[in-house]
């Protein structure tokens, strides 16, 4: 399998990258880790005339703390996310999720930015970004704008990002002590996309759920936020009945695509099951942290 021909550019700065995309027009694409784009090109589903490789852009690298936020360079590979001491300490959800993605080799190339910006509902980070209420910094030659993750995903491969923009930074909150978190992913085998997955973040106040985020992977055209389920739990003690209620509410918003991994009914139920399991684990972690 051979990709079509393209012009290759390797800018050394963000400014240069943005200038290149402006001059290259609609047929240009940014290349991050290449583990979605290159296979698509080999299958000739995607045929960009110009590839602008972001691998040498220093501004897109690195993970650093900025007050109560962590700023993540989108070219950080999944393995860099896993290995980041800062994230392990301040936002351990992200390394945990990254471990569920693909396989060791792919995690050495695949980037968090590519995963987030590609718009593929099967990717794992987007739902996590919704739960974290992350912000995406989008940069073009015209300037910068910050789009909340919860306003970023419009449809499959369709996001708030314009063709001339690059995802310049991902900002996630530092998870306070006492925050319970979990990402539960059901998959056929290592490296496969989720049949369904659920992300849960919650904080407790004397046994009462103070705040909870529940989001879902690969059960709709975009990552989904189960707002009704969140509302049903907020302000309540989370007992078995409450978990069950939340799972049922989460299932109601699912509209998964059928494939060899399962039909709509199965994937919807699995989203519910992953929600149950994620809430329970997050709850345990929140209690442990106390």
């Amino acid at each position: 399998m051979i990709p079509p021909s393209f012009a290759y550019r390797a800018p050394a700065s963000l400014k240069e990258a943005l200038a290149l995309i402006d001059e290259s027009g609609d047929d240009a694409k940014f290349l991050a880790g290449g583990h979605s784009l290159l296979p698509m090109m080999k299958f000739r589903v995607s045929e960009p005339a110009v590839l602008i490789d972001l691998g040498g852009v220093p501004e897109l690298q690195g993970i650093r703390e900025a007050g109560d936020r962590i700023h993540i360079g989108p070219m950080s590979t999944e393995n860099e996310i896993i290995g980041s001491a800062l994230l392990q300490q301040k936002c351990p959800l992200l390394p945990e999720v990254a471990r569920w993605i693909a396989d060791p080799q792919v995690r050495n190339r695949g980037t968090i930015g590519g995963d987030v910006a590609h718009g593929d509902p099967a990717n794992d980070h987007p739902a996590v970004m919704l739960a974290l209420e992350a912000d995406f910094v989008l940069r073009s030659s015209q300037g910068e704008r910050v789009v909340p993750a919860n306003e970023f995903y419009f449809g499959t491969y369709f996001t708030a990002m314009e063709a001339n923009e690059v995802l310049a930074e991902i900002r996630v909150p530092v998870l306070g002590p006492g925050t319970g978190y979990a990402y539960k992913k059901l998959k056929r085998k290592t490296g496969d996309f989720a049949i369904a997955a659920a992300c849960v973040l919650l904080t407790l106040d004397r046994g009462i759920c103070k705040r909870i985020a529940i989001t879902l992977t690969n059960v709709g055209p975009t990552p989904l936020r189960a707002s009704a389920a969140e509302q049903a739990l907020t302000g309540k003690a989370i007992d078995d009945a409450a978990v069950e209620n939340a799972a049922q509410l989460a299932m109601q918003i699912c509209d998964p695509a059928e494939d060899l991994r399962g039909d709509k009914e199965y994937k919807t139920h699995m989203a519910g099951e992953m929600v149950r399991r994620a809430i329970r684990q997050a709850l345990e972690r929140a209690k442990e942290a106390k």
């Binding site: 056929r188 060899l260 991994r261 399962g262 039909d263 139920h269 699995m270």
Partner: peptide, 18 residues
């Protein structure tokens, strides 16, 4: 015996009652 088909059997037979 993909998980999807096995689950369907379980679900149809009501073996997943909580």
């Amino acid at each position: 015996y993909k998980s999807s088909t096995v689950w369907k059997t379980i679900h149809t037979l009501n073996l997943d009652q909580r």
